[in-house]
């Protein structure tokens, strides 16, 4: 999958979890850029991402995410 395809899937997951439509995210997006990206939604998002891509993140990976780009990189890494 390309980064753009992963971001497109991530956007759909986030829209569903955050209960918003027309969400615009990029590799540089951080949690503070998205109003509904709070601690509870973050957990739901990680669970949904794992389920969607059929992957499991380690706690170190989760800890190191600073922006959407780093989440995408973790997904790419898992998808091989």
């Amino acid at each position: 999958m390309s980064n753009a395809e992963i971001i497109a899937d991530l956007t759909k997951i986030m829209e569903k979890i955050f209960d918003v439509s027309d969400l615009k995210i990029s590799m540089d997006t951080v949690a503070t850029d998205v109003e509904d990206w709070d601690s509870l939604n973050h957990i739901q998002m990680v669970v949904a991402v794992e389920k969607h891509f059929k992957i499991k993140f380690s706690s170190t990976e989760i800890q190191n995410w600073k922006n959407v780009g780093e989440i995408v990189a973790s997904i790419q890494n898992k998808l091989g």
Binding site: S39, I43, V46, V47, E50, S58, S59, I62, Q63
Partner: peptide, 15 residues
Amino acid sequence: NRMNTDMLYERIQFL
């Protein structure tokens, strides 16, 4: 921050 990450990870497994 480390505790929160541990919790997040535990929470994902719990769910």
